[in-house]
Write a protein that binds this DNA or RNA. Sequence first.
DNA 1: AGCTAGATCTACT
DNA 2: GTAGATCTAGCTA
Length: 184
Amino acid sequence: MYPLPKSFYQQDPLLVARELLGTVLVRNFGDAAEISGRIIETEAYLSGTDPASHAYNGLSCRNASLFKSGGHLYIHSMHGHHCMDIVTESQSNPTSVLIRALEPLEGIEVMKQHRSQIKLENLCSGPGKLTQALAIDKEFDGIDITKPTSPIQVYCDGHTPKKIYQSARIGISKATQFPYRFYL
DNA sequence: AGCTAGATCTACT
DNA sequence: GTAGATCTAGCTA
């Protein structure tokens, strides 16, 4: 069980999206409480050629975190929910990986409280659901998750996925043909 | 100040 | 599977 290093995130988002599957996302509250879940669904967003990316129309106030280096978070709100991206590559390449779904591991009772839901499969099975379950909001936009003090970390625990599926991305209106979604 | 788009969720059928 | 609720940033006037 070791945290993924900064160099891991500074690679191609398509590779990072695939390799993140099966790793463990940990939400640390500073005290004993901890929530974690295994990443089971991701999507890659590219720069330049990808009209679906929030970076496509250039730098603005809301997407500034996308223009940081790999290993930072990009949190954006929409439809009354928050979505969480991990930024990939470097400042000159505003790419990222959207975390779409987790399999709950630790802190399931706390997740249920955050979500007002009791069914396990409803806790983290969507980008807006998992941010709510882990109590992630705009406060976390732009933080560096490779720092040991970060309240959000991603660990590799040696788990290797059996089979990785790939398909078109979900919930977008542009560039829907690119198969940049990965899931277990 | 008003309008729209947007990487969604829930409850219901 | 579908409809309706939901919030915010960014744009236009």
